[in-house]
Design a protein around this nucleic acid. Structure first.
Length: 323
DNA sequence: AACACGTGCAACCGCCTTCGG
DNA sequence: ACCGAAGGCGGTTGCACGTGT
């Protein structure tokens, strides 16, 4: 029901004195308390019953995007960035669908991320975000570099863990409360070479070591069950890791031999989340690499790096296209 | 210190789909 | 089958905040 429809109660918004704009703490509490008692659904009725002078739609949005206990806040991680890029390349602006694969992230958040970060880079590169050049840049440069960064951070965290656990240091000691996850002896393995991109959201969810955050009922079971079987789970990110390669010297000509394959690791083995996939390690990519040039939240210095390399890549792209 | 500008994000808008009578 | 209510979704806007000058 749109805003007009929500006036069902046949009163105009003025007559109902409906509020707009930012929510107050009292409104938030009223909504939270009401839903805690009565559950979600029937948003217009809910708004009235809860004594909120808001449209049902507004209540729904506030709840889903902000108040829901499993909403994850904070920066989009490298893994999430990679996943967003990958899923967007497949589905376009299907934000809600993409959001299904990022537990705790809302479609609104992902949409905002895309518009503010990704489109910004496209703009800086003076190309359309939907252009072949930009897509290729993402595909052959940006995403592989994200993969590299993730791997690097993973390796760094593993090293840190080894040091922390010395002298008994078996790397497998990283498996704490989370799961049976191990790196072996730093010999990263690709658990799954099938480029299986048709995973269900639950499989995606299950492929991530999310253990410290709240869950929606529909994903909590999956997450819980998968956390014990990490190594055998289909590793979505590893699929992506496996899938993307980095062009050597920025030369792309669709010949696999010209691409360097990143060291093959299980993506799920290195995936993390801001809310603490490796809480015992306190790993935070942005903390580990504050100047990470591929960290799109890291400011102008990253933009410079990004621009130089991508401009070269784009030029190469254009040259190839003209041949 | 004051202003301008850019950025990020919460919230809104309007269209489309689904549901139920 | 039809119709209105409700929900869902993608696009857009407006504002708070940070940064640069």
């Amino acid at each position: 029901m749109d805003e007009k429809g929500s006036n069902a109660l046949s009163l105009s918004e003025d007559e109902m004195d409906l509020r707009r704009g930012p929510w107050t703490v009292d409104e938030d509490l009223a909504l939270i308390n009401y839903i805690a008692t009565h559950g979600e659904g029937r948003w217009n009725t809910l708004a009235l019953s809860a004594g909120l002078k808001r449209t049902g739609k507004s209540c729904r949005l506030r709840w889903l995007n902000y108040l829901r206990p499993d909403v994850r806040r904070g920066n989009i991680t490298l893994e999430e960035q990679l996943l967003i890029l990958e899923l967007h390349s497949r589905w376009g602006n299907r934000w809600s669908k993409i959001a299904q694969y990022l537990p705790g992230r809302t479609d609104n958040e992902i949409k905002n991320y895309w518009r503010t970060r990704v489109q910004k880079h496209a703009k800086q590169l003076k190309c359309d975000v939907n252009s072949k050049q930009f897509k290729d840049t993402m595909r052959y440069l940006w995403m592989p570099r994200l993969v590299e960064r993730i791997q690097a951070a993973s390796a760094a965290s593993t090293t840190a863990t080894i040091v922390a656990n010395a002298p008994t240091a078996t790397v497998a000691a990283t498996a704490t409360t989370n799961n049976a996850y191990t790196h072996g002896n730093n010999n990263f393995e690709v658990h799954n070479h099938n480029h299986k991109m048709g995973l269900s959201p639950s499989e995606y969810v299950g492929s991530q070591h999310v253990t410290t955050q709240s869950y929606t009922p529909e994903n909590s079971n999956t997450a819980a069950s998968s956390s014990d079987s990490f190594g055998t789970q289909v590793s979505t990110i590893s699929d992506i890791t496996d899938y993307y390669s980095v062009p050597v010297s920025g030369n792309k000509n669709n010949n696999c031999a010209d691409y360097y394959q990143p060291s093959q690791i299980s993506y799920s083995d290195c995936i993390t989340s801001p809310s603490g996939l490796f809480p015992h390690q306190g790993l935070d990519f942005q903390a580990v690499e504050p100047n990470n040039p591929w960290n799109m939240q890291s400011g102008d210095s990253s933009d410079n790096f990004w621009n130089v390399e991508n401009m070269l890549f784009l030029e190469q792209q254009l040259m190839n296209d003209n041949m």
